[in-house]
C-alpha cells in the first residue's frame, strides 16, 4: 500500500495547542487563513492585525508579522500599515463586539476609503472573551449575560448585518458572508478567503469576509449542537452570500 498525505497542518501555522475552547470554530478560521497564506505563497509579506477578543492571540498561531491592536481599531492600524507597505498583504481578524460595536467607525471608514486590506470578521453573536455579554450581532431573544432574558429589540435594537451595511458603500471591492460551522460551509469559506486575499494582491481594493462562527462555551451548547444552532438560528438572520464582488 502506498500512502499519500492529503491533509496536513499548513506551514504558516505555528505548531502549538491553541487557547480556544473545545469545538470553537475560531480555530477553523485560523487554519483557513494559514492555508490561503501558504497557497498564495505570501507568508513573508503578510501582516496580521488582531485586536482584543478571543482571537487576540492570533499571533501565537500564525507565523507572520503581526500587530496586537486596541479594541476595535484594527482597520485603522491595518490601513496605515498597508499604505506604508503597499507590497504587503495586510489583514485584520476581528470579533463582532470588536468590529460592529466599539470599532464601527474604523471599519466603516476603512471600507469607505477602499483600503486595500482584507478584513476577516468573526461573527459569533456574542462577546466571547469577556464572558458572554450581548454583542451587536446577538439575535433577538438570544440570552447573554447582559441580556439574561434574551435580547429585547425595544431596549437593544436588532442584530447588525455588517455585510449588507458595508455593501451600501461604493468603494469596497469584495464583501461576502460565509461560515465554518460545518465542512460544506468551510470549503466555501476558504474559497472566499482566497478571493479576498487575491482581491487585495491584485490591487482591486477592500475585501471583507464575514465568518459565522460558534462560541459553544458562551452559548452554553456542546460543540456539535452549537454548529446546528448556528445553522438554524444564525443563518436565517445572517444569510450567506456574496454582497459585492470585483468588476
Amino acid at each position: 500500500m502506498k500512502e499519500t498525505k492529503i491533509f496536513e497542518k499548513p506551514k504558516s501555522m505555528i505548531d502549538v495547542t491553541t487557547h480556544y475552547c473545545p469545538g470553537c470554530t475560531h480555530g477553523v478560521a485560523h487554519r483557513l487563513v494559514a492555508e490561503v497564506i501558504d497557497e498564495l505563497q505570501i507568508q513573508e509579506r503578510t501582516v496580521a492585525v488582531a485586536p482584543v477578543g478571543c482571537s487576540v492571540f492570533l499571533y501565537n498561531y500564525i507565523n507572520v508579522d503581526s500587530y496586537e491592536a486596541a479594541h476595535g481599531r484594527a482597520p485603522a492600524v491595518a490601513s496605515a500599515c498597508k499604505r506604508l507597505l503597499p507590497d504587503s498583504v495586510v489583514f485584520s481578524y476581528q470579533g463582532d463586539g470588536d468590529l460592529a460595536s466599539i470599532g464601527m467607525a474604523e471599519i466603516v471608514h476603512a471600507a469607505n476609503r477602499g483600503e486595500k486590506i482584507t478584513v476577516i470578521f468573526i461573527n459569533n453573536a456574542i462577546y466571547g472573551m469577556t464572558g458572554g455579554q450581548m454583542a451587536p450581532t446577538t439575535l433577538v431573544g438570544q440570552k447573554a449575560t447582559t441580556c439574561p432574558l434574551g435580547r429585547d429589540p425595544k431596549l437593544a435594537g436588532y442584530p447588525i448585518r455588517m455585510c449588507e451595511m458595508l455593501a451600501t458603500l461604493q468603494a469596497p471591492a469584495y464583501i461576502t458572508r460565509v461560515s465554518v460551522a460545518k465542512p460544506k460551509y468551510t470549503i466555501k469559506a476558504k474559497e472566499a478567503l482566497t478571493k479576498a486575499f487575491q482581491t487585495q494582491i491584485e490591487g482591486k481594493g477592500f475585501s471583507f469576509v464575514e465568518i459565522l462562527s460558534t462560541c459553544p462555551t458562551n452559548w452554553g451548547l456542546r460543540p456539535v449542537d452549537a454548529t446546528n444552532w448556528l445553522e438554524e438560528h444564525m443563518m436565517p438572520e445572517f444569510p450567506l452570500g456574496v454582497f459585492k464582488t470585483p468588476e
Binding site: 500500500m1 499519500t4 499548513p10 491553541t18 475560531h26 480555530g27 468551510t186 470549503i187
Partner: peptide, 14 residues
C-alpha cells in the same frame, strides 16, 4: 476540514 485544532492528517491509500 472541520477540526478546529488541526489534530488530524488524512492519507489516501493506494
Amino acid at each position: 476540514i472541520t477540526c478546529p485544532d488541526v489534530v488530524l492528517e488524512v492519507f489516501r491509500l493506494e
